[in-house]
Design a protein around this nucleic acid. Structure first.
Lengths: 176, 176
DNA sequence: GTACCCATGTAATCAGTTACATGATTCC
DNA sequence: GGAATCATGTAACTGATTACATGGGTAC
């Protein structure tokens, strides 16, 4: 049930249409909580039915601009401060690591090297984002910057871990 | 479609029943790929229908012991080395961070402090696991140890990030 | 004999993905 | 007038969660 709160959170900053919100999911929020077009539109309908948001204005091409209601804000705050975050996230990347003993040493090595490369590239992508965010002065800049820092530290950690795993794999597969 | 590969990976180490496999999901795999009882049993039936595993033996209480087949091993290896891991994982924890400007400074601070505490406790839990794993000499020990190291580094990173975020929040909310 | 663990299965529901479908407006 | 973009919606399917339901075997 986090998608609804992601939408409430975005609408807490101001009214927007499904189309507008979708763009947030394609850019900033894609790293944290990806969502598809069909998901966004149907969730907006449900939120409006529940009275957490309302259609504040209608524009051309059937555009509906949604605004958060008081009960929507209450629900958002409740979710942030009261509902404990999910501890376990699924990682098919780590799941493969668990079974690396089922492939050849060369394949296992290639897998970890690919991980090292990807997190390096991801780090650079986030670093470019940071430069942009640091230039802004919006309210999103503070919290967005904190989330971005998480990504930077995460990818850095991942890269170093992949290196460590490579050395560990060598000593593990060929003990001595 | 990672659950089926998690099952194949576990069965690659030797035959087991649904009940046995379930225990793996409750212990070691819970950190990486949680699965429920109903999910495991229905996926096992599907895997057997597809010929990736077979019922190797039947025991008391309707116990079915499954064994991986050759095509199951082929599929497992293909998944490990050919299928690229999922880059984006959802994090409702980070999603809340994005919207921390919607709650009071005190509440935001409490949220980050709770994250710091939790990752600290999680780190200690994993450290205790490491002590146990380091004592083993099974084939799982090598890859399991590598996955565990990821958890240790992740929780450590998370804790340090939470601290950083707290200082950042103070300077961000009350500029000067 | 009874409590606990072993052991499997099904049904209902929810969340998320992919694909399909349609049409209005703006820009050039 | 044609292309790109704005804009919303629905249908089919897959994956995951929760709850229900049942019964055999073992230890004491």
């Amino acid at each position: 049930m986090s998608l609804r709160h992601a939408l409430l959170g975005l609408l807490a900053h101001g009214p927007a249409s499904g189309y507008d919100l979708l763009k947030s999911f394609d850019s900033s929020l894609a790293n944290v909580w990806p969502a598809t077009q069909s998901q966004v539109y149907s969730e907006l309908t449900r939120l409006a039915d529940g009275g957490l948001i309302t259609v504040a204005a209608q524009g051309p091409r059937g555009r509906k601009e949604y605004a958060i209601t008081d009960s929507g804000r209450v629900e958002l705050r409740h979710w942030i401060v009261e509902v404990p975050p999910n501890r376990f996230t699924r990682s098919d990347l780590l799941l493969r690591v668990f079974f690396l003993d089922q492939v050849s040493a060369e394949e296992a090595e290639a897998y970890l090297r690919a991980g090292e490369r990807n997190s390096g590239a991801e780090y650079e992508r986030l670093e470019r984002m940071r430069e942009q965010v640091d230039a802004l002065d919006e309210p999103l800049a503070v919290t967005g910057r904190i989330a971005l820092e998480w990504g930077l530290r995460f990818t850095e950690m991942h890269r170093e871990w992949a290196r460590w795993a490579l050395s560990r794999l060598h000593s593990g597969v060929r003990p001595g």
